[in-house]
Amino acid sequence: MADTEIVFHAKGLGYTYLDRYPALDDVSFQIRRGERIALLGANGSGKSTLLKILDGLVFPTSGELSAYGQPLTEESLADPAVNARFRSRVGIVFQNSDVQVFSATVREEIAFGCLQLGLSAAETAARTADVLDMLEIEDLTDRTPFLLSGGQKKKVALASVLVMNPEVILFDEPTAALDPRTQHWLIDLIAQLGEAGKTVVLATHDLHTLADLTDRAIIFGENHRVLADTQTRAILADRSQLIAANLIHDHEV
Protein backbone atom coordinates (compact mmCIF):
# COMPACT_ATOMS: atom_id res chain seq x y z
CA MET A 1 0.00 0.00 0.00
CA ALA A 2 1.32 3.45 -0.84
CA ASP A 3 2.82 5.59 1.92
CA THR A 4 0.26 8.31 1.31
CA GLU A 5 -2.39 6.04 2.70
CA ILE A 6 -0.64 5.81 6.03
CA VAL A 7 -2.31 8.19 8.43
CA PHE A 8 -0.21 7.51 11.53
CA HIS A 9 3.18 5.88 11.75
CA ALA A 10 4.51 5.31 15.27
CA LYS A 11 8.04 4.05 15.88
CA GLY A 12 9.13 3.06 19.40
CA LEU A 13 6.79 5.50 21.14
CA GLY A 14 7.29 5.95 24.85
CA TYR A 15 5.58 8.25 27.33
CA THR A 16 6.34 8.75 31.00
CA TYR A 17 4.32 10.92 33.38
CA LEU A 18 6.36 13.11 35.71
CA ASP A 19 9.51 11.21 34.64
CA ARG A 20 8.39 8.37 36.89
CA TYR A 21 5.18 6.69 35.78
CA PRO A 22 5.37 4.95 32.41
CA ALA A 23 2.25 5.05 30.23
CA LEU A 24 3.67 3.71 26.97
CA ASP A 25 6.80 1.74 26.26
CA ASP A 26 8.28 1.06 22.82
CA VAL A 27 4.99 1.17 20.94
CA SER A 28 5.12 0.84 17.15
CA PHE A 29 2.31 0.55 14.60
CA GLN A 30 0.87 2.02 11.44
CA ILE A 31 -2.69 3.14 10.88
CA ARG A 32 -3.97 3.40 7.33
CA ARG A 33 -6.77 5.49 5.94
CA GLY A 34 -10.21 3.95 6.43
CA GLU A 35 -9.09 1.43 9.03
CA ARG A 36 -11.28 0.75 12.06
CA ILE A 37 -8.98 0.00 14.96
CA ALA A 38 -9.49 -0.80 18.61
CA LEU A 39 -6.87 0.00 21.20
CA LEU A 40 -7.48 -2.62 23.86
CA GLY A 41 -6.07 -2.73 27.32
CA ALA A 42 -6.85 -2.73 31.00
CA ASN A 43 -7.18 0.48 33.00
CA GLY A 44 -3.90 2.36 33.09
CA SER A 45 -2.36 0.51 30.15
CA GLY A 46 -1.79 3.72 28.20
CA LYS A 47 -4.70 3.76 25.70
CA SER A 48 -5.94 7.25 26.56
CA THR A 49 -2.42 8.64 26.54
CA LEU A 50 -1.85 7.14 23.10
CA LEU A 51 -5.06 8.73 21.77
CA LYS A 52 -3.91 12.13 23.01
CA ILE A 53 -0.53 11.58 21.40
CA LEU A 54 -2.25 10.66 18.11
CA ASP A 55 -4.22 13.89 18.37
CA GLY A 56 -1.11 15.97 19.01
CA LEU A 57 -2.28 17.04 22.45
CA VAL A 58 0.62 15.49 24.33
CA PHE A 59 3.91 14.44 22.83
CA PRO A 60 5.89 11.23 23.30
CA THR A 61 8.89 11.33 25.57
CA SER A 62 10.68 8.92 23.24
CA GLY A 63 10.21 7.49 19.76
CA GLU A 64 8.75 9.12 16.65
CA LEU A 65 5.26 9.72 15.35
CA SER A 66 4.25 10.98 11.95
CA ALA A 67 0.82 11.92 10.68
CA TYR A 68 0.09 12.04 6.96
CA GLY A 69 3.81 11.59 6.30
CA GLN A 70 4.86 14.59 8.41
CA PRO A 71 6.39 14.48 11.89
CA LEU A 72 3.76 15.20 14.53
CA THR A 73 5.63 17.27 17.09
CA GLU A 74 5.08 20.31 19.25
CA GLU A 75 7.27 22.30 16.86
CA SER A 76 5.38 21.23 13.73
CA LEU A 77 2.01 22.07 15.29
CA ALA A 78 3.28 25.50 16.33
CA ASP A 79 2.86 26.46 12.66
CA PRO A 80 -0.75 27.76 12.51
CA ALA A 81 -1.30 26.38 8.99
CA VAL A 82 -0.03 22.91 9.91
CA ASN A 83 -2.04 22.99 13.14
CA ALA A 84 -5.27 24.00 11.37
CA ARG A 85 -4.80 21.35 8.67
CA PHE A 86 -4.14 18.63 11.22
CA ARG A 87 -7.00 19.67 13.51
CA SER A 88 -9.44 19.68 10.62
CA ARG A 89 -8.42 16.13 9.65
CA VAL A 90 -8.26 14.48 13.07
CA GLY A 91 -10.93 14.76 15.75
CA ILE A 92 -11.11 13.29 19.23
CA VAL A 93 -14.07 12.46 21.45
CA PHE A 94 -12.95 12.52 25.07
CA GLN A 95 -14.07 9.97 27.62
CA ASN A 96 -15.22 12.70 29.97
CA SER A 97 -17.72 14.77 28.00
CA ASP A 98 -17.64 17.43 30.70
CA VAL A 99 -14.24 18.61 29.58
CA GLN A 100 -15.39 18.81 25.98
CA VAL A 101 -18.39 21.08 26.47
CA PHE A 102 -17.34 24.53 27.52
CA SER A 103 -19.48 27.01 25.58
CA ALA A 104 -22.54 28.90 26.78
CA THR A 105 -24.99 27.13 24.46
CA VAL A 106 -25.08 23.86 22.56
CA ARG A 107 -25.18 25.77 19.26
CA GLU A 108 -21.99 27.68 20.14
CA GLU A 109 -20.40 24.49 21.39
CA ILE A 110 -20.97 22.65 18.12
CA ALA A 111 -19.93 25.65 16.03
CA PHE A 112 -16.73 26.22 18.01
CA GLY A 113 -14.34 23.98 16.04
CA CYS A 114 -15.43 25.08 12.55
CA LEU A 115 -15.18 28.74 13.49
CA GLN A 116 -11.70 28.29 14.98
CA LEU A 117 -10.60 26.61 11.76
CA GLY A 118 -11.81 29.49 9.65
CA LEU A 119 -15.06 28.17 8.15
CA SER A 120 -17.47 31.00 7.40
CA ALA A 121 -20.22 31.74 9.91
CA ALA A 122 -22.92 30.88 7.35
CA GLU A 123 -21.36 27.53 6.45
CA THR A 124 -20.75 26.76 10.13
CA ALA A 125 -24.37 27.56 11.01
CA ALA A 126 -25.61 25.29 8.22
CA ARG A 127 -23.35 22.43 9.30
CA THR A 128 -24.35 22.93 12.93
CA ALA A 129 -28.02 22.67 11.98
CA ASP A 130 -27.31 19.50 9.96
CA VAL A 131 -25.49 17.81 12.83
CA LEU A 132 -28.16 18.83 15.34
CA ASP A 133 -30.71 17.26 13.02
CA MET A 134 -28.64 14.12 12.37
CA LEU A 135 -28.13 13.44 16.07
CA GLU A 136 -31.73 14.45 16.84
CA ILE A 137 -30.75 17.03 19.44
CA GLU A 138 -32.37 20.15 17.94
CA ASP A 139 -34.30 20.59 21.17
CA LEU A 140 -31.01 21.16 22.98
CA THR A 141 -29.82 23.93 20.64
CA ASP A 142 -30.10 26.81 23.09
CA ARG A 143 -29.47 24.82 26.26
CA THR A 144 -26.38 25.23 28.39
CA PRO A 145 -24.17 22.17 27.74
CA PHE A 146 -22.93 21.65 31.29
CA LEU A 147 -26.50 21.30 32.55
CA LEU A 148 -27.31 18.38 30.22
CA SER A 149 -27.47 14.72 31.21
CA GLY A 150 -24.47 12.44 30.60
CA GLY A 151 -25.94 10.97 27.41
CA GLN A 152 -26.91 14.37 26.04
CA LYS A 153 -23.45 15.75 26.80
CA LYS A 154 -21.89 12.84 24.94
CA LYS A 155 -24.09 13.58 21.92
CA VAL A 156 -23.12 17.25 22.01
CA ALA A 157 -19.44 16.35 22.37
CA LEU A 158 -19.76 14.01 19.41
CA ALA A 159 -21.64 16.60 17.37
CA SER A 160 -18.91 19.15 18.10
CA VAL A 161 -16.38 16.80 16.49
CA LEU A 162 -18.54 15.47 13.62
CA VAL A 163 -19.38 19.00 12.48
CA MET A 164 -15.72 19.45 11.55
CA ASN A 165 -15.99 16.38 9.30
CA PRO A 166 -12.61 14.93 10.27
CA GLU A 167 -11.07 12.07 8.28
CA VAL A 168 -9.94 10.38 11.47
CA ILE A 169 -12.03 10.14 14.64
CA LEU A 170 -10.43 9.04 17.89
CA PHE A 171 -12.82 7.79 20.57
CA ASP A 172 -11.77 7.37 24.18
CA GLU A 173 -13.97 4.81 25.95
CA PRO A 174 -16.97 5.94 23.90
CA THR A 175 -19.62 3.92 25.70
CA ALA A 176 -18.39 4.42 29.26
CA ALA A 177 -21.01 5.65 31.75
CA LEU A 178 -23.81 5.73 29.18
CA ASP A 179 -27.22 4.15 29.57
CA PRO A 180 -27.91 1.09 27.34
CA ARG A 181 -30.02 3.00 24.80
CA THR A 182 -27.39 5.71 24.32
CA GLN A 183 -24.68 3.05 24.16
CA HIS A 184 -26.46 1.28 21.31
CA TRP A 185 -27.12 4.54 19.54
CA LEU A 186 -23.44 5.45 19.76
CA ILE A 187 -22.28 2.03 18.61
CA ASP A 188 -24.54 2.27 15.55
CA LEU A 189 -23.18 5.73 14.80
CA ILE A 190 -19.56 4.62 15.06
CA ALA A 191 -20.33 1.70 12.75
CA GLN A 192 -21.96 4.11 10.31
CA LEU A 193 -18.92 6.38 10.38
CA GLY A 194 -16.63 3.43 9.72
CA GLU A 195 -18.74 2.33 6.77
CA ALA A 196 -18.59 5.89 5.43
CA GLY A 197 -14.82 5.51 5.13
CA LYS A 198 -13.72 7.39 8.21
CA THR A 199 -10.64 6.15 9.99
CA VAL A 200 -11.90 5.17 13.42
CA VAL A 201 -9.62 4.52 16.38
CA LEU A 202 -11.30 3.67 19.64
CA ALA A 203 -9.74 2.99 23.00
CA THR A 204 -11.78 0.61 25.08
CA HIS A 205 -11.81 -2.39 27.34
CA ASP A 206 -15.37 -3.27 26.40
CA LEU A 207 -15.20 -6.35 24.18
CA HIS A 208 -18.89 -6.89 23.53
CA THR A 209 -19.34 -4.86 20.39
CA LEU A 210 -15.78 -4.77 19.21
CA ALA A 211 -16.16 -7.24 16.35
CA ASP A 212 -18.89 -5.12 14.77
CA LEU A 213 -17.04 -1.85 15.16
CA THR A 214 -13.44 -2.66 14.29
CA ASP A 215 -11.42 -4.82 11.94
CA ARG A 216 -8.13 -4.62 13.75
CA ALA A 217 -7.12 -4.45 17.39
CA ILE A 218 -3.93 -3.49 19.15
CA ILE A 219 -3.71 -4.96 22.64
CA PHE A 220 -1.70 -3.22 25.33
CA GLY A 221 -0.32 -5.15 28.23
CA GLU A 222 -0.10 -3.94 31.78
CA ASN A 223 3.60 -3.33 31.07
CA HIS A 224 2.44 -0.59 28.60
CA ARG A 225 3.81 -2.46 25.59
CA VAL A 226 1.97 -3.83 22.58
CA LEU A 227 1.02 -7.44 23.26
CA ALA A 228 -0.64 -8.10 19.92
CA ASP A 229 -1.64 -6.26 16.76
CA THR A 230 -3.91 -8.27 14.53
CA GLN A 231 -7.48 -8.78 13.32
CA THR A 232 -10.14 -8.10 15.94
CA ARG A 233 -11.84 -11.45 15.48
CA ALA A 234 -8.55 -13.29 15.90
CA ILE A 235 -7.80 -11.40 19.09
CA LEU A 236 -11.27 -12.01 20.48
CA ALA A 237 -10.79 -15.73 19.87
CA ASP A 238 -7.45 -15.79 21.69
CA ARG A 239 -8.56 -16.29 25.27
CA SER A 240 -5.10 -16.56 26.78
CA GLN A 241 -4.08 -13.27 25.16
CA LEU A 242 -7.15 -11.51 26.55
CA ILE A 243 -6.49 -12.90 30.02
CA ALA A 244 -2.85 -11.84 29.83
CA ALA A 245 -3.96 -8.30 28.97
CA ASN A 246 -6.43 -8.31 31.89
CA LEU A 247 -9.31 -7.83 29.47
CA ILE A 248 -11.23 -10.88 30.60
CA HIS A 249 -11.27 -12.93 33.73
CA ASP A 250 -11.52 -16.69 33.76
CA HIS A 251 -15.07 -16.91 35.02
CA GLU A 252 -16.24 -14.65 32.17
CA VAL A 253 -15.51 -17.25 29.48
Partner: peptide, 24 residues
Protein backbone atom coordinates in the same frame (compact mmCIF):
# COMPACT_ATOMS: atom_id res chain seq x y z
CA UNK B 1 -5.84 17.71 35.67
CA UNK B 2 -9.33 18.63 34.53
CA UNK B 3 -8.35 22.10 33.39
CA UNK B 4 -5.56 20.56 31.33
CA UNK B 5 -8.11 18.31 29.66
CA UNK B 6 -10.47 21.22 28.98
CA UNK B 7 -7.63 23.04 27.29
CA UNK B 8 -6.73 19.93 25.30
CA UNK B 9 -10.36 19.60 24.19
CA UNK B 10 -10.28 23.20 22.97
CA UNK B 11 -6.92 22.75 21.25
CA UNK B 12 -8.18 19.58 19.56
CA UNK B 13 -10.86 21.67 17.87
CA UNK B 14 -8.45 24.25 16.56
CA UNK B 15 -8.41 26.79 19.40
CA UNK B 16 -5.19 28.78 19.30
CA UNK B 17 -6.04 31.71 21.56
CA UNK B 18 -8.35 33.62 19.22
CA UNK B 19 -12.10 33.45 19.70
CA UNK B 20 -14.44 33.32 16.73
CA UNK B 21 -18.21 33.46 17.05
CA UNK B 22 -21.16 32.51 14.89
CA UNK B 23 -22.42 36.05 14.56
CA UNK B 24 -19.78 38.50 13.40
Amino acid sequence: HLSEEVHQAMTARGYAGQHHTLTG
